[in-house]
Design a protein around this nucleic acid. Structure first.
Length: 583
RNA sequence: GGGGGCGUGGUGAAGUCAGGAGUUCACGCCGGCCUGUCAAGCCGGAGGUCGCGGGUUCAAAUCCCGUCGUCCCCGCCA
């Protein structure tokens, strides 16, 4: 730590090694224990806590100290008297015998306690975020985030990546997520958009010959909030020329391992597992499987197709499947089971069949009477069921069935805390997915290269792309792909997407033109920093690792944003509001 | 766009299902006592339009309707 006008040591620096030294420490009053004669003050700074002792009669100001006053004390470092050491505290064997004390700044009575013992209403915490961030877990989260980003930058720098900033006022593209729009004063009636990602700019940088680019980029998507989604979020964005998929994946492993090691102090084993999208869906019912636990989805279709039980057999007749999972020992009260059925329907299932394995091996289920002995024992052996296990089965269209079971698998099996870290790559995503109106949409983005272009043109629905995701503990940490570097291929993809050449030219003409000037093959990725750090810190939502997040309705209780603006500002922009939309 | 939970002194909770005086507990705050504590302790005190609006009722924190805020989920998030 460099020299400071205000202090000669940080709280955490006070140790036996400095016994007898006169030091000045500055920080906040974390706790004050005034015994009338003697008083103890725990001084907190960014490094930690140290106890200052104000002896009787010495410092009259002591009794006026209140929590979170900002103070500095000068005194002598001394060992604590025998028997009064505090082993819970890193500096617990020493204390500062205060000789002089300065109140740098007083503090009003706090809106909430700054320890971690109570869960204060989050709105109040956000309103006083500057106080909330003084709390130990929040301060630790900020530090972890900084450590993670520093590790990312270190790896990128070591690998020769160039950090390049791309603009945040860009052209809007109606595809994908909703854009945040910013009105232009010079071009009235026109708008910038805030970037959903630096996608096209980093591809331009590849055309520019940068070869290896990265950026810690703020990205914006005007969609609804979730516990793992904010409209404004940070990504480690990267791209490399003369790169194929495996070049990206190996680099990602290096980044992830460096971050995990710097934040958690553990080494992940490499290489990370790889799973095709098809396998992930088939086995775990999701494209972001949580590999910390098993409970795989098992195919019961051949066994149950001939069943007397119509829910199974008619589903198969209609081209569907029957799948099941063994959820292991679960609470199997009627209300719990009813809730599972409700949940399954909410996700889209026609129904859900449950079976509980009794101690004698018999299956207790509302539908047991419709199934033959051999079918019941077949189910048991396929699901490796033992006494006490809860078995869940669903029948119907493949995608719906596996997604429902995948969701229930998470509800029933997901570990509460991220003690173990289970990363994997999901590869071979479909190039397109069906939209509600029967058209096709890119499953990643329209600049993703298909594995086989002519196959894509013939049978786009079954086209596989060179896209991949990084998944950690069931969270999508990020995604990337090998990009299209050929203008002709890019045009074909737009065609499949139903974007005619005129529209493509109007929206992306500048980019399609750029592709025609010697574009190197390139590939890249973006890692969601907020999600990554929240998993590493065992936080259930990303707001815990974002210094100043927004609430679910996109407001900031601290600054009051978003706010109305002056009429004059609107006038300058040529904007007239049409209010009373709700009235 | 939809479903659900929550809203009670500054903070956290109980009370709400089953209506009967703003009742209770912990922390904080204010004052006093106290020379080895570390969530210090002991004594005393202040502090609330039960989110807001309407309705039902002799009577509403409690029941009903609406609304606002917040959290979780579905849709959405190429």
């Amino acid at each position: 730590m460099s020299k400071s006008t205000f202090r000669t040591a940080r709280a955490a620096d006070i140790s036996k090694a400095r016994e007898g030294d006169t030091v000045t420490v500055a920080g906040w009053v974390s706790r004050r224990r005034d015994h009338g004669g003697i008083a103890f003050v725990d001084i907190r700074d960014a490094s930690g806590l140290v106890q200052a002792v104000i002896d009787p009669g010495e410092i009259p100001a002591a009794q006026d100290l209140r929590m979170e006053y900002c103070i500095s004390v000068t005194g002598t470092v001394r060992p604590r008297p025998e028997g009064t050491e505090n082993p819970q505290m890193p500096t617990g064997s020493v204390e500062i015998g205060v000789e002089s004390l300065t109140v740098l700044s007083t503090a009003e009575a706090l809106p909430f306690m700054l320890d971690d013992r109570v869960d204060v209403d989050e709105r109040t915490r956000l309103q006083y975020r500057y106080l909330d961030l003084r709390r130990p877990t929040m301060a630790a989260n900020l530090r972890a985030r900084s450590t993670a980003v520093a590790a990312m930058r270190r790896v990128m720098d070591d690998l020769g990546f160039l950090e390049v900033e791309t603009p945040t006022l860009i052209a809007s593209t109606p595809e994908g997520a909703r854009d945040f729009l910013v009105p232009s004063r010079h071009h009235k009636g026109s708008f910038y958009a805030l970037p959903q990602s630096p996608q096209l700019f980093k591809q331009l940088l590849m055309i520019s010959g940068v070869e290896r680019y990265y950026q810690v980029a703020k990205c914006y998507r005007d969609e609804d909030f979730r516990s793992d989604r904010q409209v404004e979020f940070a990504q480690l964005d990267l791209e490399g020329s003369f790169w194929d998929r495996d070049d990206v994946l190996e680099t990602l492993e290096e980044i992830v391992c460096a971050v995990v090691e710097s934040v958690r102090g553990v080494r992940l084993s490499r290489p990370f597992p790889r799973m095709t999208w098809q396998e992930a869906m088939e086995t775990y019912g999701t494209d972001k499987p949580d590999l910390r636990f098993g409970m795989p989805i098992i195919d019961l279709t051949p066994m149950l197709a001939p069943s007397e039980f119509k829910a199974f057999s008619s589903a198969v007749e209609a081209g569907g499947v029957v799948r099941g999972i063994n959820a292991g020992p679960q609470e199997s009260s009627r209300s719990k089971l009813d809730a599972l059925v409700e949940r399954a329907k909410e996700i889209g299932a026609r129904g859900l069949v449950w079976m509980v394995v009794e101690d004698d091996g018999a299956l207790r289920s509302p539908v047991a009477k419709f199934l033959s002995e051999s079918e019941l024992s077949g189910i048991k052996s396929a699901l490796q069921a033992g006494p006490g296990d809860l078995l869940l089965m669903a029948a119907g269209e493949w995608r719906t069935v596996v997604e429902v079971l995948g969701e229930l698998r998470l509800d029933l099996g997901k570990p509460a805390r991220h003690e173990e870290l289970a990363p994997l790559f999901v590869i071979d995503f479909p190039t397109f997915e069906k939209t509600g109106d029967g058209g096709l949409a890119p499953s990643h983005h329209p600049f993703t290269a298909p594995v086989d272009v002519s196959q894509m043109e013939e049978d786009p629905e079954n086209s596989i792309s060179k896209a991949y995701d990084l998944v950690l503990n069931g969270s999508e940490l990020g995604s990337g792909s090998v990009r299209i570097h050929d203008a002709g291929v890019q045009a074909k993809v737009f065609e499949v997407l139903g974007i005619d050449s005129e529209t493509a030219e109007r929206r992306f003409g500048w980019f399609l033109e750029a592709l025609r000037y010697g574009t190197p093959p390139h590939a890249g990725f973006a890692i969601g920093i907020d999600r990554f750090v929240s998993i590493l810190q065992n936080e259930p939502n990303i707001r815990q690792v974002i210094p100043f997040p927004k609430t679910q309705t996109g407001s900031d209780p601290l600054t009051g944003s978003p706010t109305a603006v002056e009429e004059a500002q609107l006038l300058e922009l040529g904007i007239k509001l049409r209010l009373a939309l709700k009235a």
